[in-house]
């Protein structure tokens, strides 16, 4: 279950960015420093995570603003799904 969540989040991130890094997304990657996600990119990411996972991402905007890494986004989704992180 949790692997599926991670895969969906990675897919959403890959769709949100256009760099070569999209091919090799890892949990420890920094959203801003490694994947170069800017303000519009973060909104795009929240939208795509919503589409991929079905969570209400925009009710958790504070968590998205505070998220630093790929793993943080996965954790947001798991929290929203009521899963342990």
């Amino acid at each position: 279950m949790s692997d599926k969540t991670e895969a969906k989040v990675h897919r959403a991130i890959a769709a949100a960015i256009s760099s070569a890094a999209a091919k090799d997304i890892r949990p420890d990657m920094s959203l801003r420093l490694d994947l170069h996600i800017d303000s519009v990119g973060l909104m795009t990411l929240a939208f795509l995570v919503e589409q991929e996972t079905g969570i209400d991402a925009f009710s958790r905007v504070q968590e998205f603003v505070a998220a630093e890494s790929v793993a943080d986004i996965v954790a947001i989704v798991r929290r929203a799904q009521g899963l342990m992180v």
Binding site: V40, L42, M43, T44, A46, F47, F58, Q62, V65
Partner: peptide, 17 residues
């Protein structure tokens, strides 16, 4: 970018800052 994000959601994200 072809993303149909409602303006209300964009506002919510911005206001979170």
């Amino acid at each position: 970018a072809g993303l149909p994000i409602p303006r209300e959601k964009v506002t919510r994200m911005h206001d979170a800052t």
